[in-house]
Design a protein around this nucleic acid. Structure first.
Lengths: 164, 164
DNA sequence: TAAAATAGTTTGTGGCACGTACTAAATCAA
DNA sequence: TTGATTTAGTACGTGCCACAAACTATTTTA
């Protein structure tokens, strides 16, 4: 189930990975790339995701739990650790005195931008191995997959709430 | 940095994700799919990777540390927990009395096969959203990316040792 | 054969995720 | 309106995962 192991069986044609194995391997490669870039800034994947979500939102703890698909008790600890590093702040909600809003600090915003930029550069340079026309094709096919998958789950990838 | 957040900015053309964002999002989708399938069998990603590596090898602890890119002390605990569940066994090495070989048990082999099959089916059904010709194209492009990336790191993806 | 290197374990620390139990505030119902 | 229920968040205990440092046992080397 390591990238190596995944590509080992069911390789249909020699000199070419099966689509399933290839996609799996590529996923691990990209995931590992983000993990590495985040680690260079002392961030875990989940801390990075947290900061990423906060780039364009100021959600409650509860909303964070839903978006990140974690238990609310996990969010408490996650935000605790980020707050200790001055990456996020807790802000009391005006609308609901039980609720707590979470926002990026300048430091948090700078950090996530940095990681995103470095990660983006990595993926871009990986993609540079393909001629531009192939890149365009790949982009189109990947988009199609994602849109189809999102549609399956009743989500419009380009709806205002999601995209704006 | 959640799949949602990643796709949110630098979306060049409307109705289409940038290649970088699309690939990132697809990676998280596939990674999450494996995570879910593994969790259904009470396995973490790293436990699943461990079992995956062992499908076609019987490495030492030290080799495992290299393949999984973990500290050897992490491997001790990882193998401990897997051994407790009767998924792997430690076997003393004949060649080096310091060394310990790790092998799958029948139970471990059955479990990893099960997870791999379910995960493979997930990815396949995702791919089924594309017409066959697009699938072939995608497969070719992904393979090309992986081969190019491997070559960068001085690895021949199809060398006998790697490909079995 | 003595010193250095290697294989693996143990212990301590911290992050991450969960479930349970708890407090405070908001909402619902009678 | 007030009493019951639901909701938002935290605290605590448990377990997994990862690391570094310290340790034992073996092998290699000089």
């Amino acid at each position: 189930m390591t990238s190596r192991a995944v590509d080992r069986r069911a390789t249909a044609a020699p000199e070419e990975l099966s689509t399933v194995d290839g996609l799996a391997q590529l996923s691990f490669l990209i995931h590992g790339t983000l993990e590495r870039r985040a680690a260079e800034r002392e961030l875990s994947i989940i801390q990075t995701r947290l900061l990423g979500v906060l780039r364009d939102r100021k959600p409650t703890m509860n909303e964070l739990a839903k978006v990140l698909m974690l238990d609310k008790s996990s969010i408490s600890g996650l935000v605790d650790r980020a707050e200790r590093r001055d990456l996020v702040v807790r802000v009391p909600s005006d609308a609901d005195r039980r609720a707590v809003l979470v926002a990026l600090t300048d430091r948090g915003r700078a950090l996530v931008s940095d990681v995103a930029a470095r990660f983006g550069a990595d993926v871009s340079s990986l993609l540079d191995r393909l001629p531009a026309s192939d890149r365009a094709t790949l982009s189109r096919l990947v988009s199609r997959l994602l849109v189809a998958h999102a549609a399956d789950r009743g989500i419009d990838l380009f709806a205002p709430t999601t995209t704006g």
